[in-house]
Simulated scan of single mutants.
Amino acid sequence: MTITASDVMLVDQQIDAFNRQALDDFMACYSPHATVLTDGEVVASGEDALRALYVRQFAEAPLTATVLSRSSQAEWIVDRERVEGGGIPPMSVLALYRVRAGLIDMVQFVGRQAE
């Protein structure tokens, strides 16, 4: 599989919705069967779990993500992001997004560390 311009636009739309804490716009970027992993651990799988995770995060610790660099490999879009807000120190994180059939079906967050 090859990354397309529309795949990149979808990831950008997802980041924009995340930064605005616009839950419905955010969820529209994800497959109903999407899985989210943090450092290899599944933290949400499926639409209901994903929605519950981000309802809580948007309410308790609204964060913003800034893309510092981006690359792609096979079916993955890989961002190095600066995440800040919500009363936490800024963090650097790798975010790996897999887009299939026009929706994000998996995202992995790797190597969170304070900046």
Rank of each mutant, 00 (worst) to 15 (best):
V43Y: 06
E60H: 11
G87Q: 06
R112F: 15
I88H: 04
I88W: 00
R20G: 04
L23A: 10
Q108H: 15
F58I: 07
A95E: 03
I77S: 07
P32L: 03
I88N: 00
S72H: 14
T38N: 12
L94M: 14
V83D: 00
R20H: 14
A59E: 15
W76F: 14
R100E: 06
Q14I: 00
E47F: 01
Q108I: 12
V110K: 02
P32D: 15
T35L: 09
G87I: 05
I15N: 13
C29N: 10
A49N: 11
G85I: 01
H33N: 12
V99C: 02
A52C: 04
D12R: 11
L68C: 03
V93M: 08
A17W: 10
A34R: 06
M27A: 05
S71H: 13
R80H: 12
Y97T: 05
R98P: 03
P89I: 06
D39Y: 02
M27P: 07
R80F: 00
V99A: 07
E84A: 13
D24L: 11
I15C: 11
R20C: 09
Y30P: 03
Q57S: 11
R51Q: 09
R80E: 12
D105G: 02
L63D: 08
C29T: 10
A74V: 06
V42W: 06
A44D: 09
R112M: 14
Q73I: 13
R20D: 10
R98F: 07
I77L: 14
D24S: 13
G85K: 01
P32W: 11
E84G: 01
V99W: 03
N19F: 09
R51G: 03
L96F: 10
V110Y: 02
A34M: 08
S92I: 15
V55P: 03
R56K: 14
A114N: 08
A65K: 11
R100P: 08
R51P: 11
T4G: 04
P62R: 08
Y54N: 12
